[in-house]
Structure formats: C-alpha cells, structure tokens
Amino acid sequence: MNDKRTNLEIIAPSVEEAIEKGLNDLGMPRQSVDIEILDEGGKGLFGLGNRQARVRLTIKSETDEPGAEPSPTSAGNGDTFLTAEQALDAEEEELDEEPPFLGDDYVLDVARDVVSELLEKMKVRADVTAEYVPTSDTRSRVPVRVNINGDDLSYLIGRQAETLNALQYISSLIINKEIGRSVHLIVDVEGYRLRRENQLRQLARRMADQAVSTGRRQVLEPMPANERRIVHIELRDNPSVETESIGEDPRRKVTVIPQ
C-alpha cells in the first residue's frame, strides 16, 4: 500500500468528472497524479440509488519513474500538496493558522494505537489502520481517518451512528491530549461514513431540485453536525439555493431555501 503518499478521493456522477474535479481541487495537471478508479458508478438495483463514480488521485512524488516503486512520502511530496492546499486556502476567508501536517507518521501511529486500545478493551477484534484524507474542503485541517475493518461490526456503528460517534469523540479527546494539539479525527467502520456521505450528497441535490421546482423551502430530517456539514458543503456552490440550519441539537436540521 502507498497510503503514506498524498491522495485524494473524489466522488462525482462520472469517472471523468471525478478526475476533472480532483485535478482542479489539487491544482495539478493529470500527468502529476496516479489515477485509481475505485468505483465506476452506475445504476443501482432496480434503477434506484444510482451509484456515483469514485476515484482516488495520488500525487506522484518527483522521484517516481514510470514503473518504479512508489517512494514513501518525501518532503518534496508533502510540499507539493501544501502548495496546492494553500492556494485553495487563499480563496477562503477563514484561514486556519495551523498548516496541515502531512507525512507526520507520529500522529497516525497515535491515532491508530488509541483506537486499537479502546477496541481491545471493548473486546472487539478488528483491523485498524490510519491515514490522512486530503480533501477539497480547505476550511479545516487535513483529517486523519482511522478505518476499522472486521467481521460483522455493525454494532460499532449503532443507531444513527451513535456508537461510532462516541468512539470517534472519545478517541479524538485522547489523541488530542496525547499529542498536544487538536487533530480532525474521523473514525470509520467498514466504509460506513463514505457510504453515508454519498447518500447525504444525493439527498442534498435532490432537495435542492425540489426546492427550486416547488419554490418552497425543504426541511431535512434532524442530523448531527458532521452530517449537516456535508449537506451545506454539497450545496455551497449551487447558486439556485441557500442552506441554513435551524433548531437545537439533537433536533437541529438543514433547510434548503430556493433563491
């Protein structure tokens, strides 16, 4: 695995659009990245739930020759990414003081160890890995994602991801305390969050269409903050709607307002 290198996962209606979007986000030409198609997308069963295409772009390190073994993260590799991120950052009003820490294996090790330790104490047997998740969302630091994989772990997700969120919250408190700064941590079980994110993005777009076609504001079900955020981000660049959260947690919900 080359999970130490900078990579970006993008989801879009088609493979081509996903690649396009990813290259745009990274601000890099096509020849500077390796493209891996994770999911070509396509029609779901019974014509329902069309799947989006999913691709992973990995920034080639400068020393990479065609056919050569991928080299581990070099300083140059990290810098390339930082530059692209910073260029995007400059467009945002909210600048983060802390630059993303890429290639900082210590943070990944701590994150993985803390989650493993918690699972072990819960008598859960599972594989735990940690990686950085570069995103196009430049408002936050580069998240660290800890993936938990194993047999039949749905009880680790719980109703409305309650257990998964508890695990993520406790893990992030412990990790932050241990390394002395705040890390944006995502804990995932069997790809649940990615699946949920796809669902939410589709829902967001559907609600936007409905808002426009009916001329009425659409109110979504109550969601936790991380899920509301996905909806806001998905519709951020859509000029025909505005989004707004109303109510108080845990009943806070997103509304989509036609413009």
Binding site: A166, Y169, L173
Partner: peptide, 18 residues
C-alpha cells in the same frame, strides 16, 4: 455530559459483548 455519555455508550457495547 458529552464525554460521560460517550463513555456510557462504549461501555454498553463492551458489556453486550459479554
């Protein structure tokens, strides 16, 4: 009570395992 409730949630799962 967010930390306490998260601990309770994980504890519930750990207990259910046994």
């Amino acid at each position: 009570g967010r930390v306490a409730n998260s601990m309770r949630n994980l504890l519930r799962v750990a207990a259910a395992r046994e």
